[in-house]
Each structure stands twice: as structure tokens, then as C-alpha cells.
Design a protein around this nucleic acid. Structure first.
Lengths: 180, 180
DNA sequence: CTTACCATGTAAGGCGTTACATGATTCA
DNA sequence: TGAATCATGTAACGCCTTACATGGTAAG
């Protein structure tokens, strides 16, 4: 019962909110979860079939749509599995920023090059922040019966706060670079 | 010439500062770099031998120490390789926080469980922050000839700022959880 | 004298991405 | 009618961690 694969848990988590196709799961990953998690089709589709095999989800064809959709639903066992995982302590929070790695060794190429990386970073963060801010507005204006929005808000708030701090750091970093 | 493996670049970066053994490289990873990068012996030792095979580093036995040390030195080609990598645009900055994942699906187990995860996160951050703060003090009081300390400071500053923000978020998150 | 740490490595296996392969539908 | 998007999947491959294996040295 140990060794819960993260990909299984994310998918079950998403399915605990609503029925979804593999394609839709990928979309959630790329929008809602992308600030703290990611996954590719190459891991999602096999995982979905695996979940069905283990009785944690069921699969059915969508008859209403014209498209060849396969809709996945979480089962009672799937919900139990998810809940169990949720109570386990966090194994790993990992941050892997190539930007910081290159800055750390920045003396080898000098200030100009370091500045380029900082500015690229700043640009990316600035471009992603609006989506988070609008998500917050939407969530605050649409409370829902179950508390899903509240928990979603927790992660959005994390994103906003850290991204704003990243931008402050960019200013500070440029100052450190150009002084001395 | 493309497809620079990150592990090679980190090692070359560390070697660009000073000669090191594989064991010492691992130590740097676990202290200095751990806030934004990590690697295990299982990737470090093979990578080191590979770097030697490709002429990017040299290996020699330490005759002075009583221990069986293998000291690695970056070569001129290694330095060229490193510099080249430093000029390439960042491919990926990745954050993968299981804490946020579990909070996102938190409604399934409720407030109490979510609170446990937030407090565990808070505790971890609080325990790691002092090392960053003391690193900053040390770096500010020991400027060096080459600018390595300045670039190191950039990443330390990033760590301090984000960790402090994480702690602020913890307070905010608890408020969001217990209200409404 | 034994615990902690120094020190180097390998093998198996897990996990995941990338690239490929295919085809339907919607929209301009 | 052609591009974008919807939609599902597989195969190859890469990269890394975990666990194992081994032994020396320093310190209490």
C-alpha cells in the first residue's frame, strides 16, 4: 500500500473534483497545476489505464460528443486511496531552477550574461503573474458548496506571493550585480 | 555540442571554483546548492569519469592525504564547455511541491489535515532559513578577488526572500483555511 | 573499540519526457 | 481547405535515485 506514485495521486485528485478525459487532465496540469506540478501525455495516459486496472477509476466512452472521448471517473476505492495519500507526510518539495544554477556560476561569464538570465527570468514571471491574479479574483467571487475553491485559493496565493517576491529579487539581483 | 547534461554542467561549475573530490562535490550539493539543485552519488561519480573521458576534467590521486582521494580538476576545454553552456538560454525552471499538490486536493480530507501539511512546511522552512541568513552575513563580510561570492550571494538572496515569503504565506494560508 | 564520517563506486530499476503515429472536428 | 485544436496512445530512450558493496580514518 506504500509507494504511491505521484502521477496516480494527481490524476485521482483531479478526478475527485469531476469526471475528466485524459486530454482534459493534461489541460488542468498546464493551467491550474503548472505552478507547482507538471506531467506529459506519455505519463498520463498509461497511468489512467493503470488506475482502471487497479479499480481506482472507471473508463467509459462519451456517447454525447462527436469526438472519441474516454471519460474517467474515480471509484470509491480510488477515493479511499487518494484520502490515504493525503494523510501521509510530504516526501519531497523540490525546486530546480536552472536560472539560479547559471547565476551561481555566473562569474565565469560575467555581469552582462548574468543580467540576461535575470531579465529572461523576470520576463517569464511577469508574463505568468496575470493569470494567477485573475484566478484569485475569480475564486474570491465564486465560493462553492464543497470547499474546492478554498483549497485552490491556497495554492494561487502561494503562486502570487512567490512570484511577486521573485520580481523583487530581480531588482535586488540587478543591484548586487552592478555594484562592487 | 548541444544536449548539455545538467549534471556535467553543475560539476564543471563547481570545479571552475576549485579542485574537488566526488565526495566534496556531493557536499557542496547538499549545502550550498541544495536550495535550487540536487544530485546523488549515483549520478556524480559516473559523470566525473565521463568528464575525464571527454577531456573536460582531469583526475589525480591525492598523495598528501592518507585517504584514497581522487581529485578532479577542470581543463581548459572544460572551462570552454562551461562558458558555452552559461550563454545558452534557460531551458527549464521547475518547482515541484508535493505540499501544494496535497493542499490543492485538501477538501477531500479537510482543514485539520491541510493544517498539518502547512505546519510541517513551515517548520521545515524555519529550520532551513538560519543557514541562508548566516551564509549572507559571511558573504557580505568576505568579498573575494574573483566575483564568486557576489554570484553566490545572488542565489542566497533568492533563498532568503522566497523562504521569508513562504513563512508569510503559511500565516495567510492558515487564515484562509479557518475562515469561511 | 566503536561510532561517525570520509571516500568511491555499481546495478537495478523507476519514472518520466520526447518524439512519433494517427485521426476527427471546428473555425476562419 | 487548411490550420488549430481536440483526442488517444506507444516506443525509445534518458536520466536519476535507491540500495548495495566496500573499506579507510578520526575522534571520543
Amino acid at each position: 500500500m506504500a509507494n504511491e506514485k505521484k502521477i496516480d495521486c494527481v490524476i485521482l485528485g483531479l478526478l475527485s473534483h469531476e469526471e475528466l478525459t485524459g486530454y482534459e487532465i493534461k489541460k488542468r496540469m498546464d493551467t491550474t497545476l503548472k505552478y507547482f506540478w507538471s506531467a506529459s501525455y506519455g505519463s498520463i495516459y498509461p497511468a489512467l489505464n493503470d488506475l482502471v486496472d487497479r479499480g481506482l477509476a472507471t473508463k467509459r466512452e462519451d456517447t454525447e460528443s462527436k469526438r472519441n472521448k474516454l471519460i474517467y471517473t474515480i471509484t470509491e476505492n480510488g477515493r479511499i486511496y487518494l484520502k490515504k495519500w493525503l494523510t501521509l507526510p510530504i516526501e519531497k518539495d523540490e525546486l530546480r531552477y536552472e536560472t539560479l544554477l547559471k547565476l551561481f556560476f555566473g562569474n565565469e561569464k560575467g555581469e552582462e550574461q548574468a543580467m540576461i538570465h535575470i531579465e529572461a527570468f523576470e520576463k517569464r514571471i511577469k508574463s505568468e503573474l496575470p493569470a494567477l491574479l485573475s484566478a484569485k479574483t475569480i475564486l474570491n467571487n465564486s465560493p462553492n458548496e464543497d470547499d474546492t475553491h478554498k483549497y485552490y485559493l491556497l495554492t494561487v496565493e502561494f503562486g502570487i506571493k512567490t512570484y511577486q517576491t521573485y520580481l523583487e529579487w530581480c531588482q535586488e539581483a540587478k543591484k548586487i550585480l552592478t555594484r562592487g
